[in-house]
Simulated scan of single mutants.
Amino acid sequence: MSAISDVKPDKPDLTGSRVLLVEDEYYIADDLCRALEGCGAEVVGPVPSLAEALPLAESESLTCAVLDINLRGESGLRVAETLQRRNVPFVYSTGYSSASVPEALKGAAHLEKPFRIEELLHAVSQVSR
Rank of each mutant, 00 (worst) to 15 (best):
R34Y: 12
I117C: 13
E81K: 13
S5V: 10
R85G: 11
D68M: 03
E23P: 02
V47G: 06
E112Q: 14
S17T: 13
S2H: 11
P114D: 01
Y92G: 04
I4V: 15
S59K: 14
L56C: 06
A109E: 12
T15A: 12
P114L: 01
L54H: 08
G16C: 00
V22P: 02
A35E: 07
K8C: 06
S2R: 13
K106T: 14
Y92P: 07
A109P: 15
P89K: 08
L77I: 10
G73Q: 06
V43K: 01
G76V: 04
S49K: 11
L71N: 02
D68C: 04
L83G: 05
K113Q: 01
Q126A: 15
G38R: 07
V127I: 11
E119N: 14
G38N: 10
L105C: 10
P9Q: 08
T15Y: 00
S2W: 03
L121H: 08
F90V: 02
P102Y: 04
G45I: 07
V19A: 00
V47F: 09
A35Q: 07
K8R: 15
G40T: 11
L105V: 09
S100G: 01
S17Y: 00
V7G: 03
R78Q: 13
L36S: 03
L54P: 06
S75Q: 08
S97P: 08
S98M: 10
L56V: 08
G76M: 03
V91P: 05
S100R: 13
E37S: 11
S5E: 12
L83N: 09
A53Q: 08
A104S: 14
R86I: 08
L14S: 00
S17I: 00
G38Q: 04
S125T: 05
L77Q: 10
D68P: 03
E74R: 14
A65C: 12
V7H: 01
A41C: 10
L111Q: 04
R129L: 10
T82C: 15
R116G: 12
G38D: 07
P46A: 11
V7A: 04
V44L: 12
A35R: 05
G73L: 09
A104D: 11
C33F: 05
A29Q: 06
P12R: 04
F115K: 02
E103V: 14
A109G: 08
